[in-house]
Design a protein around this nucleic acid. Structure first.
Lengths: 347, 347
DNA sequence: CCTACAGTCGTAAACGTTTACGGGATGCGT
DNA sequence: ACGCATCCCGTAAACGTTTACGACTGTAGG
């Protein structure tokens, strides 16, 4: 069936009444409503969303931007699918739908986002992997599209975000290693342009200095947060003259490559080198020796993200009392065997 | 900036000219076009997609339906992100965008799909995980929405699909095991309502019978295709009185749980029980002993899916010569250690 | 009998685009 | 000076909805 007009003609009533009947408006005879619903079902009529959202100015759809580069795919470990279920649980309460927007790897994420919000196919957006300076945030702020970010940024003063507790993780990881006698502790991180790359290393540096351990820039290994990056990180570690006794990985996935490279040189993780990971990565759960790491619930994160977003949308604002526009997301340490040894004092 | 009307007023030219200028239509003065583009850029104007697609009747967006249930998330291992990059490579040629539609776990996929195509936010759809009887296929056929499915189905005569080569995999897996003396070969599969659950077991049965090995229904283990399912499968295998010497897993991920359960009983995969996996699952790549399995390129699959879909869309049909509306996707055997032992003849 | 009102329904405007159509200006050839 | 083509632009219709408004019944109350 084409449009509401054909449906109205078929029923021999006016188009307005059909619309009211379908949308549950009050002033329509129950008998008429029944007929309309029956006919719509029979003819398979469903309202065209373009017309509808043109008229109403909203789409009832929330967008979640993700990256689909080959690297991101290898890297991802269904982080997004994980938060998706939490998000949908929140959105379902308001009959909102979620759409994932995968940005092509060869396109500028900001241009892509601009195109997508221009399409006005979503009422609000969720972005992640924020850069220290992230033009997407300016774009969304200026376009007055409600949004929430996974990750902080220096851009655009005050916007809603949730970020992982890098400070806490760095502090606890360093504490754990230092208490076992480690003094030369390496760390892996992506480029400092990525916000998390900057914050994590900075927290690590402070945690070291609080304990009187001097910060050695050569122990900061800038590699991709991937299995491949882990391999390379191990490689670079082995080239250092004063080899570290511990390493903190910013992503658990890296442990897979790291372990492999270590094994190649006969170095046993958890005996010759302490390893601590960060963020739950299903793929890394099966390493031997098991990895000590910081984990969290992606589902809960999704819930929090969804509620924070709704609190920022005019239509739902009053339902979600000011829960704070910023959240530092806590992680829980899951102790494994990969850092279960102590360093004897050398001096 | 609100709409094209305000932009036109600001420029003191007509709304029609502005539209033509923005859309690169020929009959507009280059100087005017320059002014329009500059003003649009300055005021941040972008065309409202609702109005546009209402007028043109198309959205230039392709939808990819995925499931976001907790189970699917655990199960997924970024299969979809993998094909996504291939899909986008094809779609980018035609300035098409890809949208992922995650179906909430508590909603009927068919209802969800109906709602989404009703929204007319996509011009075409890609679905996967087809059931033997899949109402989504009828729905899309009847609504005349171009689509392509990952997986065959009994539904609706002739529709475009790509499916994995279950027959070939079952045949080669059985051959490989039988040639090493195995006679009692178990297999895991999901419910036979899922198309793949039916086809895989059927192929396995035929492969057995071609070699004169009788089919034993008790060796077909119906469990979830997940890590948890693998654990349970091992459990059930151990309960069988005449224990099999080999097992074929329909999803590699299951090997993780299976290994764990076997270890608990002191059974060593690759020595006491031969294991062969199916479909590339990054998480399962790091098992000890390494898993023998059948793999493929998700990227290439994405390319093929995209091209098959375009061949079914009126606007692009002539560009993609009839490449066949059905493809059986081949997989490559990657030999590991998990099935590297032979059975001595007992009788 | 008149008024008021509730219950229904039809009419038409509005949402923001694109585009077919026509018309005015300009330039050119005759 | 005239015809004609070219270039550019404005006008208005159309896409499919929703919804404010008004109109038409029938009923009850005065």
């Amino acid at each position: 069936m084409r449009g509401i007009r054909q449906l109205a003609e078929h029923l021999e009533i006016s188009i307005g009444t059909v619309s009211r009947a379908l949308n549950g408006k009050p002033d329509v005879n129950e008998e008429t409503r029944r007929r309309v619903l029956a006919a719509a079902e029979e003819l398979g009529y469903v309202a065209n969303q373009s017309g509808r959202s043109l008229r109403q100015g909203e789409t009832k759809v929330i967008g979640l931007m993700i990256e689909s580069s080959q690297e991101a795919v290898e890297n991802a470990d269904n982080f997004f699918l994980g938060v998706t279920s939490g998000l949908q649980h929140v959105f379902a309460r308001h009959k909102l739908d979620l759409l994932m927007l995968p940005c092509p790897s060869d396109e500028d994420p900001c241009e892509y986002l601009k195109r997508m919000v221009a399409r006005r196919v979503v009422d609000a957006m969720i972005i992640s992997n924020t850069q220290r300076i992230d033009r997407r945030i300016d774009l969304l702020s200026r376009a007055r599209i409600p949004f929430v970010a996974v990750g902080r940024s220096l851009s655009a003063g005050n916007f809603p975000w949730i970020d992982l507790d890098f400070e806490g993780v760095a502090e606890r990881a360093v504490e754990r290693l230092a208490s076992r006698g480690h003094r030369r502790i390496a760390i892996t991180a992506p480029s400092s342009e990525v916000n998390l790359g900057y914050v994590f290393v900075e927290s690590y540096r402070q945690a070291l200095e609080r304990r009187g351990i001097s910060f050695d820039p050569s122990l900061v290994i800038r590699v991709k947060s991937s299995e491949q990056g882990g391999y390379q990180a191990a490689h670079e570690l082995l080239l250092l003259e004063d080899r570290p006794t511990a390493v903190i990985l910013i992503y658990e996935l890296m442990a897979i490559g790291l372990y492999r490279r270590l094994m190649e040189s006969g170095i046993v993780p958890g005996r010759d080198l302490a390893v601590i990971g960060f963020r739950d990565a299903p793929r890394a759960r099966f390493l031997q020796p098991s990895l000590s790491c910081f984990r969290m619930s992606l589902y809960d994160l999704g819930i929090a993200l969804g509620e924070m977003l709704l609190a920022d949308m005019p239509a739902y604002r009053e339902l979600y009392p000011d829960s704070g526009r910023n959240i530092i997301w806590p992680l829980e340490l899951v102790a494994g065997e990969s850092d279960a040894f102590e360093i004897k004092a050398m001096v």
